[in-house]
Amino acid sequence: MPTVAPLDLEGHVAGVAFLGDVPFFAESSGLIHRLDHGHKTVEAHEGLLSCIRDDATETLLTGGEDGKVLRIRADGTASEIANVPRKWISQVAAGPQGAVAYAYGKTAHVRLADGTVKDFTEERTVEGIAFAPKGLRIAVARYNGVSLHWVGIAGQPVDLEWKGAHTGVTFSPDGRFVVTSMQENALHGWKLDTKPGAETRHMRMTGYPAKIKSVSWSAKGKWLASSGAPAAIVWPFQAKDGPMGKAPLELGTRANIMVTQVCCHPAEEIAAIGYADGMIMVVRFTDSKEVLLRRPGKGAITAMAWNKTGRQLAFGSEAGDSGVVDIAG
């Protein structure tokens, strides 16, 4: 049976991650908690807006209402990557070779390991940013599509156009697809490995009753799980044209309780699914087998992360009730 070690925090949890075996919980207030031989706390920001794990360096990257971008190490020490007074840093991304991207207003900035900063200005506000899995390239989500920029090469960006507001962006692990979440309760995808001069193939993933706040790629990139419905909607990306013409899996269906977070396992084709009532299930893709990890709690699940072995799952909610599930319990 899975066992839950609870951690009660004051407020909304914006991000969770494991650094080594230590779980970290980032509160919107700017406090970052870690369970490392006891409960330890660091005051990182005056208001935290974004928190992600940088796999290349085993650190956290955070952005705040105080205009700071910080790198936080496993021992809780923080170093400043950027400081832009009076700007809100709601987008951060981790890239190869220690590169970090962050954005405010209409400009995305990429800071390289040697301290060089490259700026990429869009015509509209930057809503999402992601690094490609290979090569130093970024995707920037904005109104009416995505811009793809090579960081080290001066040149025109590749524009992937699709009308509407694109609010987040992700590359598939093999780099063949770019997928955005949209304001209009949909995902939109582009196939990147078309022949030069050929038209980019579009993928429309629609039919969601709510906005998609969470997406997660499976370990080998064969599936893309998403929130925004009373089930995790999991699109197949194994075929050369991705999910075009294929129906998604619907996992962990509950009658009227929305899925708010999804998090695919680091090795197996299963996903943790967090709901609006605080419940968490893990579901297998092949046969939809469900295991309850946590009963409903105080608030909607807002963040989840597996440790490297996939035996532990850290989670946080909008009400602050958080914890670590030990699957092997």
Rank of each mutant, 00 (worst) to 15 (best):
H33C: 04
E199D: 10
G115P: 07
G128P: 01
R254D: 15
L293N: 08
Y102T: 03
I327G: 00
H188K: 13
Q261E: 15
Y275D: 06
E43I: 05
L7A: 13
R294P: 00
K163M: 08
D119P: 05
E250Q: 13
K68T: 08
P266W: 09
L313R: 03
W150M: 09
A139R: 00
G168D: 14
A154M: 06
G207A: 13
L160R: 02
R294K: 13
D55G: 08
K134N: 05
W223Q: 03
L31T: 01
E184D: 14
R124D: 14
L70R: 12
A74N: 10
A210I: 00
G274S: 11
H33D: 12
A44E: 02
A44G: 08
T260S: 15
A103W: 00
V291T: 15
V4W: 11
V126N: 00
V325P: 04
K211S: 12
A225P: 12
G278W: 02
V126W: 00
T286C: 13
G64P: 06
V42H: 02
H149V: 10
T116Y: 04
V282N: 04
A113Q: 05
G105V: 01
Q312S: 15
S90V: 03
V234E: 02
S218I: 02
G242P: 08
W223R: 04
R86S: 15
T167E: 13
G105M: 03
S214I: 08
W217K: 01
Q312N: 13
Y104W: 13
T125G: 07
G245I: 00
H12Y: 15
T3F: 06
A141S: 09
M281W: 11
R311L: 15
F171M: 06
P236F: 05
P85Q: 14
R124K: 08
T302A: 01
G11W: 02
G135F: 06
L187Q: 05
E80V: 14
A231R: 00
G207H: 10
K163E: 12
K298M: 03
E122A: 12
V69S: 00
A108D: 11
V179K: 01
P266M: 07
H149Q: 03
T206F: 02
H39M: 04
V69N: 03
E80D: 07
T253D: 09
S79I: 14
P85N: 05
R254P: 08
G245M: 00
D287E: 13
G329D: 05
I72T: 10
S29I: 06
P248S: 09
P85A: 14
L70K: 10
Y102D: 07
V179D: 06
W88A: 15
F18W: 12
V69D: 11
R311S: 14
S90D: 14
I212L: 07
L9A: 11
L61F: 01
K211H: 11
K213W: 04
G115C: 12
A74I: 12
V291R: 15
I89Q: 01
S172G: 11
H33M: 03
R284Y: 13
D8K: 10
K213C: 04
A276Q: 05
L112T: 06
A26N: 04
A225N: 15
K222I: 06
K68S: 09
T62D: 08
G228K: 03
L35Y: 10
L136N: 01
H265L: 09
T125H: 04
K87T: 15
I52P: 05
